[in-house]
Amino acid sequence: MLLKVENLQAEIDEKQILKGLNIEVKPGEVHAIMGPNGAGKSTLANVLSGRDDYEVTEGHVTFDGEDLLELDAEDRARKGLFLAFQYPVEIPGVSNKLFMQTALNAVREERGLPALDMFDFDEFAKAKIELLDMRADLLERSVNVGFSGGEKKRNDIFQMALLEPKLCILDETDSGLDIDALRVVANGVNALRSAERSFIVVTHYQRLLDYIKPDHVHVLYNGQIVKSGGFELVHELEENGYDEIIQQFENKNQ
């Protein structure tokens, strides 16, 4: 098991968002987490990646045999957890290249690999840029500054490709993307799929999932997983919306 989340409960500003969430992800699996606005999708992504605005009040998370919740955000990243942001952050003045070289060498240090110098990094990065069919000037610019929405998301996928994580969490990476940008992101994800690498794709819409075709689909509502299934669940949701599932769940709990 790569990731095991048990009875996860978390709050922000004393408001409980996650109310006992369970999920298990094996190596190589692709899980989609869908749900209406306010269900707790982004909270789950942020709690797993270690943003300290959220407080975990109950539950356990094991990642690759370690207690994930005990680790700082940077250590989670170094151990192979990657978050693709819903809103990638602009950092004026910090070049994408310096940022990515520093990040890559941090992760390599954790894996006991030697740091890459500028030339080795350039070569390594160039291969990834080609793999993802991205613009070569990406590295020369400040982190996300002046990037379009699509470019920001692509930059995140590029970082994912460089860092070669074990678990990739995509937090509504598809939001705000036009169809071409969506395709580039999806192709990037598919190019990175492997027998060892797992994905959790958090999304509100089925668009991205049509390209990625997840193995497992979960519906998150009111801080809990209320229904799980295979890829067919995506189309069920597309036709009927969330209302039916939510209604079933509410009835069951009455």
């Binding site: 990646s49 270690g50 943003r51 300290d52 700082d72 955000a73 940077e74 990243a77 170094r78 990657f82 978050l83 942001f85 990638p88 952050v89 950092i91 940022f99 990515m100 520093t102 990040a103 941090a106 992760v107 954790e110 982190v143 970082q159 860092l163």
Partner: peptide
Amino acid sequence: KNQIFYLQARGIRR
């Protein structure tokens, strides 16, 4: 702090 977290989420120490 969003900038700090973005870098941390890529493995860079705070």
